[in-house]
Design a protein around this nucleic acid. Structure first.
Length: 122
DNA sequence: TCAAAGGCGCCAA
DNA sequence: CTTGGCGCCTTTG
C-alpha cells in the first residue's frame, strides 16, 4: 500500500491529465444544442476551478475525432474568442447559427443562449 | 524534488 | 475599442 508510481496513479488506467481532459469532454458534452457556455463556466462545471485558460488550450488541441461541441464554448460575456475570418472562427459562427444561435459582431446573446444549470434565481 | 516558463482567458481602466 | 495587468494551470529542465 501507499504506493505512488510516478506517471499514473489512477485505478481506471487513466493518467491524471487524461481524467482532467475527460472531465472537460464530459462537461462539454453536457451542453445542449442551441446553447453556449464560457470557458470559465465550463472549467468551473468540469470541476477544474478557474482553469479557463487550460480549457481554451485543451479545446484548441482537440483530437480530430472528438466530435465535441467546441463551437459552443465562447469567451466571457458571450463574445467569440475566435477571430472572424479564421477557419475555426468561421465554422464556429456557422455552426452556432445552424443551431439557432444569432451571432452579431462576434457576440452571442447569453441572455438567450447562455447555458443555465438549474439556477433560475436571478 | 524544486523551479521556471508558457499560454490563454477575464477583468479593469 | 484598445491596452495592461492578473491569476491560474500545465508542461519541461
Amino acid at each position: 500500500m501507499a504506493e505512488k508510481p510516478s506517471g499514473n496513479d489512477d485505478p481506471s488506467g487513466l493518467s491524471a491529465a487524461e481524467v482532467r481532459r475527460t472531465a472537460l469532454y464530459i462537461t462539454l458534452n453536457q451542453v445542449p444544442t442551441g446553447t453556449v457556455i464560457t470557458y470559465g463556466q465550463l472549467a468551473d462545471l468540469a470541476g477544474l476551478g478557474r482553469a479557463a485558460r487550460w480549457v481554451g488550450r485543451t479545446l484548441s488541441q482537440l483530437p480530430e475525432g472528438s466530435s465535441l461541441p467546441w463551437h459552443r464554448v465562447i469567451a466571457a460575456g458571450g463574445r467569440l474568442s475566435l477571430p472572424a475570418g479564421s477557419v475555426s472562427g468561421d465554422e464556429q459562427r456557422a455552426r452556432l447559427r445552424a443551431e439557432g444561435i444569432t451571432v452579431q459582431n462576434n457576440r452571442v446573446d447569453m441572455r438567450r443562449h447562455g447555458w443555465r444549470p438549474i439556477e433560475h434565481c436571478g
